[in-house]
Amino acid sequence: KTYTFRVRIVDEETGEEKEIEVTAKSEEEAKKAAEELKKKYPNLKVELE
């Protein structure tokens, strides 16, 4: 079973919002993916929905 999570990304500089879908095998995995995004884009606000 896989879970699909919507991750909302807000670029703090431009105020631009993007939504991406993360497919993960567990909620834990999705959280890790969101953390990776935060590391990659430090000025983005990442929200897991």
Results as ranks from 00 to 15, higher is better:
Lys1Tyr: 08
Lys1Ala: 10
Thr2Tyr: 14
Thr2Leu: 14
Thr2Pro: 06
Thr2Arg: 11
Tyr3Cys: 08
Tyr3His: 05
Tyr3Val: 04
Thr4Ser: 07
Thr4Asp: 02
Thr4Glu: 03
Thr4Tyr: 12
Thr4Lys: 12
Phe5Val: 06
Arg6Asn: 04
Arg6His: 06
Arg6Ser: 05
Val7His: 00
Val7Leu: 11
Val7Glu: 00
Arg8Glu: 00
Arg8Cys: 09
Ile9His: 01
Ile9Phe: 11
Ile9Trp: 15
Val10Phe: 13
Val10Ser: 05
Val10Pro: 02
Val10Lys: 08
Val10Gln: 05
Asp11Phe: 03
Asp11Leu: 03
Asp11Pro: 00
Glu12Pro: 15
Glu12Phe: 09
Glu13Gly: 06
Thr14Phe: 01
Gly15Gln: 03
Gly15Thr: 01
Gly15Asn: 03
Glu16Leu: 09
Glu16Trp: 14
Glu16Val: 08
Glu17Lys: 06
Glu17Gln: 09
Glu17Cys: 14
Lys18Phe: 15
Lys18Asn: 08
Lys18Val: 14
Lys18Ile: 15
Glu19Asp: 05
Glu19Thr: 15
Glu19Asn: 09
Glu19Gln: 10
Ile20His: 02
Glu21Pro: 03
Val22Lys: 00
Thr23Leu: 12
Thr23Trp: 14
Thr23Gly: 03
Lys25Cys: 14
Lys25Trp: 12
Ser26Ile: 01
Glu27Asp: 04
Glu27Trp: 15
Glu27Ala: 10
Glu29Lys: 02
Ala30Asp: 00
Ala30Ser: 02
Ala30His: 01
Lys31Thr: 07
Lys31Glu: 07
Lys32Arg: 12
Lys32Ile: 11
Ala33Glu: 05
Ala33Gln: 10
Ala34Ser: 05
Ala34Ile: 15
Glu36Trp: 13
Glu36Ala: 11
Leu37Asp: 00
Leu37Phe: 09
Lys38Phe: 13
Lys38Ser: 10
Lys38Pro: 02
Lys38Cys: 10
Lys39Trp: 07
Lys39Cys: 08
Lys40Leu: 12
Lys40Ser: 06
Tyr41Thr: 03
Tyr41Cys: 05
Pro42Asn: 05
Pro42Ser: 07
Pro42Gly: 05
Asn43Met: 07
Asn43Asp: 06
Asn43Ala: 06
Leu44His: 14
Leu44Pro: 02
Leu44Gln: 06
Leu44Lys: 09
Lys45Thr: 10
Lys45Ile: 12
Lys45Gln: 08
Lys45Leu: 11
Lys45Pro: 03
Val46Pro: 03
Val46Phe: 12
Leu48Glu: 05
Leu48Asp: 04
Leu48Gly: 05
Leu48Cys: 13
Leu48Arg: 04
Glu49His: 13
